[in-house]
């Protein structure tokens, strides 16, 4: 009996924190999303109005689409950059360079999200370093990139390339080099080695990174708010408008739950895909 009871007791503080700071607020948000804000108080009748509102108003749906589109574009571009990086790091770099590379990839995690976004805003603004550099080379019209959707994408990609590189790298380094030797030995050239051995075996890392990138992009408010110029709002910005301008917490909660549902769905799909890919 004593043996059975003690482990449960040890778990208690963690579970209590979890319930207090995660389960309860979430429950409150779900509950609230079924009521309507009326001035300073909540309406008295439970209703689906907030959800109906969300799915019937074009600007909410547009925001949803903007979020999904942003997620896909950011994920796609980040993957295109991160995969070759991770590949070089795991197959063509010495142990020292690998350590340096991983450190560099971790750097963005140590800087504040807000500071990073503002740095990009300054770098991309008309007087910023990027614009000046691009201008002096006459390479491409980077002038005016600040406060555009492109700036949001740049800010996101900068961060997620690092994240994706790490997840992909962790998959790539785990591929035994003998697999590649075996494939070459059996007559495979580089394209075949890549498409038939390396790519399929790196899929768990790719999927995990893609899932994280997509879900985190979907859920981020700071980057689009600081960099995006506000001409195409994503869902998180619409949620914040509901909170800050309207004080409409039930509507914000309803939108947030839609966002959560999408994120959970993506995570579940990714988990299935990962377990399938690494089976």
């Amino acid at each position: 009996m004593r043996k059975g009871l003690w482990p449960t007791l040890y778990l208690f503080p963690a579970s209590a924190l979890f319930v207090l700071f995660f389960v309860l607020p979430l429950a409150a948000m779900i509950w609230m999303s079924f009521y309507q804000q009326q001035g300073f108080v909540l309406g008295t009748e439970a209703t689906l109005a907030n959800y109906l509102n969300f799915f019937s108003k074009p600007y909410y749906l547009q925001a949803l689409w903007n979020s999904l589109w942003m997620g896909m574009v950011v994920t796609g571009i980040s993957l295109l950059i991160a995969y070759p990086l991770a590949y070089i790091l795991s197959f063509h770099a010495s142990a020292t360079w690998q350590r340096i590379g991983i450190m560099v990839c971790m750097l963005p995690f140590w800087t504040s999200y807000v500071v990073r976004s503002y740095s990009w805003l300054l770098a991309l603004s008309n007087n910023g370093v990027v614009s000046q550099a691009a201008d002096s080379i006459g390479f491409f019209p980077a002038v005016g990139l600040a406060n555009t959707t492109a700036a949001t994408i740049i800010g996101f990609v900068h961060f997620f390339v690092m994240l994706l590189s790490l997840t992909i790298f962790s998959s790539l380094v785990r591929i035994p080099r003998s697999y590649i030797r075996a494939a070459q030995d059996l007559g495979a050239g580089w394209p075949s080695v890549f498409t038939r051995i390396i790519w399929p075996l790196s899929l768990p890392g790719v999927i995990a990174g893609v899932m994280l990138t997509f879900v985190l992009t979907l859920g981020d408010y700071v980057t689009p708010q600081i960099l995006g110029g506000g001409k195409e709002l994503v869902l998180t910005q619409v949620i914040m408008l509901q909170v800050q301008r309207q004080g409409n917490f039930p509507m914000a909660g309803a939108i947030n739950l839609v966002l959560m549902a999408i994120s959970i769905a993506v995570t579940l799909i990714a988990n299935r895909a990962i377990s399938k890919a690494s089976r």
Partner: peptide, 8 residues
């Protein structure tokens, strides 16, 4: 190969 290097 020593570890067989079979493709999992």
């Amino acid at each position: 190969f020593q570890d067989y290097a079979l493709f999992p």
